[in-house]
Amino acid sequence: MMRLPRFQYFAPRTLKDAAGLLSHWGPEASLVAGGTDLWPNMKRRQFTPTRVIGLRGVPELHAITGSPSTGMTVGAMISLTALERHDGVAAMWPALAHAARLISTPPLRNMGTLGGNLCLDTRCNYWNQTLEWRKSIDFCLKKAGSICWVATSSPRCWAVSSSDTAPVLCAIGAEVTLLSTEGERRIPVTQLFRDDGIEYLNKRSNEILTAVHLPPNGGEWRASYRKLRRRGSFDFPVLGVAAAARLDRGVVVEARIVLTGVGSRPHEATEAAEALVGKRLDDPAAVATAVERAARLAKPLDNTDFALGWRKEMSRHHVAAAIADLAAAG
């Protein structure tokens, strides 16, 4: 049986205590929310923190507040199941509920949290392996090795951003609150991520992601999410496309397209989205331009499921499908 390494567990009851513990133990410590990412990674000895700070006992992380007219705040410890079944969230941003429903499997959605899904470690099939397997390739750039086996001459790690909620939250303009002993700050989700497989978050090591703020939506915004994976459950996105648009009398006023699974962070296809502005969502020329521009951003590498050439081709298809979903959402 795969077992966890030995660790000391802390169960703070307040955010202040949690931040204090994190600050005290520094890099020796990891935060755990639902545990569906950290525990397997620890069992594979990808990470061996000696202190683990559990957030489940902190009450303020478990609330959803607000309304579609004011926007909503979702506590980081809200489970993916609770998120997808929350009437307010589903009414305001159905694409977010949809993306949450596509994550992994029902028991893992019961356990996994929105905060955890945003902070999900980048994935790579040279990395999500046991210690012994990684030793047999002499490790990799992400940890203990000197070469990124995905791109051997690369100075950077190409592990893949694999969160299903992140691209949707980027597309709808959500924000997150980060808290540490030094205080609190609120940043757009788009700024939470960095294009690096190792340092993939702009979250300082002493910060806790406490809440996700969903912008208000009285129906002027539409959003969609398309996910590519081999099976109907279990699998992480090999490609995910989130799209969002604000329309005025059928004409796009504002649009965002975000791709995941094809880089170390969710990639916002700004130029692609711009092609839709001022056009109708079923304008074939505008859609074709958006698809071409978005697909150019997708640079899949050989470190997930499916052949990479085909994945590149599928990004075209999925961007078109996500835009078609937007058009149909009206």
């Binding site: 567990y9 545990g35 569906t36 525990w39 559990g54 029902p106 028991p107 019961n110 356990m111």
Partner: peptide, 22 residues
């Protein structure tokens, strides 16, 4: 590792994977 479901139990009435619950 949470990849098969064989260890599922109900924890406070919710289906969870006992291999990934400390």
């Amino acid at each position: 590792l949470g990849e098969c479901g064989a260890c599922a139990v109900l924890l406070d009435g919710q289906l969870v994977l006992s291999c990934l619950v400390a």
